[in-house]
Design a protein around this nucleic acid. Structure first.
Lengths: 366, 366
DNA sequence: CCAAATCGATGAACCGATTCAAGGACCCCT
DNA sequence: AGGGGTCCTTGAATCGGTTCATCGATTTGG
């Protein structure tokens, strides 16, 4: 038995197709007697109600919005930042009875469920890797979208935090505590999955905006405090434990004067760094102070609780979803704040560091 | 300018609609020269590629599967169990290039994105509240589905753990440690959002299968160990902190001999109970032993680390997704195991507890 | 009692593609 | 020249609804 259609019901009930449609969608427009006849006919041939695919084709609305990420679904569901973002979006979806789906724009594949094939009313773009590929794809698709953490996007909504200012605040906290030799754990700077030390040449080629802005912010604070750029080492990581471990191994290589403090561009990395340092026998904050970024829930529960930059991730999700549904196209910048916990303490005394300064100069990376 | 359609491109390029379709979907079937002409025409009128809605209508496939929950999206994204389940499903979706969406069947609303309106290839049903409403709705929709934690479902796939046996193992652990007065923190037993003590009458009316099975399992173990049913108190909670707090207040009311151990039907509740007990000045495990259920990631990190029943939640997700995509309809039961950590210790000796019973009740703060 | 308003139902246009049987063009071979 | 293949392309059917102008019938108003 083939699946019953509106038309089949119409024929059996002896009414027009439009009437059957009305019975299901606007019953109040149909006389009761007739309505019941139609319903009876529907039941008789096992009609399950109007097929959504047809409805969407005609109406153009699917009541579904997508969060697009340039990572795997699995990644985003397990990343604290991703979870919070989703959670915020979900709140709005709940309130509006809108569905939520995740689109992975990981590979360049166009098959399956992708930006080009997803049946949705709009996108929220989250570029972990601050690329603008997603923006390009979304634009091509011609659906409304809001970009998160991608800076201003002409013709679309955007929600951000002021990364540069926030990063400066984090770095200022450290310089205020007297730290002068500082290591930076940076997020990826492009989509090449590269890890390693960052020199000026590399800095000049950064294509993702988040790491660039934060790096600039850190530098702002260093300049204010007259920190010698030669005492700052930057390592590009992948926001996972292995690459952070690698960074720590390099920064804290034996025979080399190591940083007294670390600035991490995500709490995930900061926490990974704590672990790596512990395995090397170094204690946080006694041997090394660490400032994270994001203030994920784990940051507070960690030991020691992490000093970090709080950014309202869930709120980002909420705002993005609301903007998308309301069709707004502003660029909104959400506030951040420094949360001081126990992972940062004053740098070791001047004397000690002065002595250190007379020792042979360390390799200089930046 | 109206949106360009396949047909418009066809007209402009002077070919048939079918050919244009082929250019986009099976380019190898079209002669190169012609293909380029079509592509040029498409670009000229700003055709963005075949619209997914049309494709879906015709092909009947959307490449999207849904996790259906009878809760809000926000809830499921923040519940550790839900996160794990999603994570497992996501792994399979990633591998198959299939999309993932969450459908909330919370209210009885039929508008927006619901079981009846979602454009998907199939459902994974997760009934926190072991109702069979979802099964009914899914069946009516006529799409393939797999039910998680709902017992065997005729004509559909199902994946479960053996709740009764697992619960018995948890309870046996406690009786083996000498505990005889035991409190049970139960999940909801129906969709009424009721909380409170559970007597035989209530027990008889349980409509959700998970709490029933687990309660039966606990009883199995109590019977084996000759625990007096009168020493067992069951409290129905809502899997959240407030209702657990309420349960704890009742079970540990002043002037009453309190349980020496607690069986919680979820780690979420077990952890909430730890918190509530701590606020009352009672220590886990010294004053009260606790066994959870699920073994969520937090269970291991908690202090004290939680003794619990491990169930392979992520695997449930993976298996369910694979079954759905493969069209399998078996009933698969996944293994569980007892994980003994530090939240359970032997019961206080018979003598000591007898003495304690004669002492004045301690001051209680909550 | 006629005109106007109301109500309910109709029918056809339209949403945007996929697919496949059938036909045309062209080449090879005998 | 004609039979037999290839290789493209076409045309039309199909997927399943929604919507709205229109029309007939019934009420209401004056």
């Amino acid at each position: 038995m083939k699946k019953a259609r509106l038309k089949d019901v119409a024929v059996l009930a002896g009414v027009s197709q439009g009437t059957v449609s009305n019975v299901f969608n606007r019953p109040e427009l149909v006389r009761e007697e007739l309505r019941e006849r139609v319903l009876a006919a529907a039941k008789k041939i096992g009609f399950r109600g109007p097929a959504p695919a047809g409805r969407v084709l005609r109406s153009g609305r699917s009541n579904l919005i997508a969060l697009v990420v340039d990572a795997s679904l699995h990644y985003i569901l397990n990343d604290p930042f991703g979870q919070k973002l989703l959670s915020g979006i979900a709140e709005v979806c709940d309130a509006e009875h809108i569905g939520l789906t995740i689109v992975s724009a990981d590979a360049e594949r166009r098959d399956g469920w992708s930006i080009e094939s997803a049946i949705v009313d709009g996108f929220i773009l989250f570029c972990i890797t601050e690329d603008n590929t997603l923006v390009e794809l979304a634009r091509r698709r011609g659906l409304p979208f809001v970009a998160v953490d991608s800076g201003e996007v002409p013709g679309a909504g955007a929600v951000d935090v002021d990364d540069r200012t926030a990063a400066a605040e984090a770095a200022r906290h450290l310089t205020g505590l007297g730290h002068r030799r500082i290591g930076i754990l940076s997020l990826e700077m492009d989509d090449k999955e590269r890890t390693g030390l960052v020199d000026e040449a590399r800095f000049a080629t950064i294509s993702y905006t988040t790491p660039r802005s934060r790096l600039l912010g850190y530098r702002d604070a260093f300049a204010e405090a007259d920190v010698d750029p030669a005492d700052v080492v930057v390592y590009e990581c992948l926001n996972d434990a292995p690459s952070v471990e690698e960074a720590i191994r390099v920064m804290f290589a034996p025979g080399r004067e190591h940083p007294t403090a670390l600035l991490a561009m995500s709490d995930t990395m900061a926490l990974a760094a704590c672990g790596a340092l512990a395995r090397m026998g170094l204690s946080v904050p006694h041997d090394v102070s660490i400032v994270g970024f994001d203030d994920v829930p784990e940051a507070e529960r960690a030991s020691p609780p992490l000093t970090t930059i709080r950014q309202p991730v869930e709120e980002k999700g909420r705002v993005a979803a609301r903007m998308l549904l309301a069709g707004e196209r502003e660029h909104r910048v959400l506030p951040t704040s420094l949360v001081v916990r126990a992972s940062t303490i004053p740098a070791p005394s001047e004397k000690r560091s002065a002595r250190a300064a007379r020792e042979p100069a360390p390799v200089q990376d930046l």
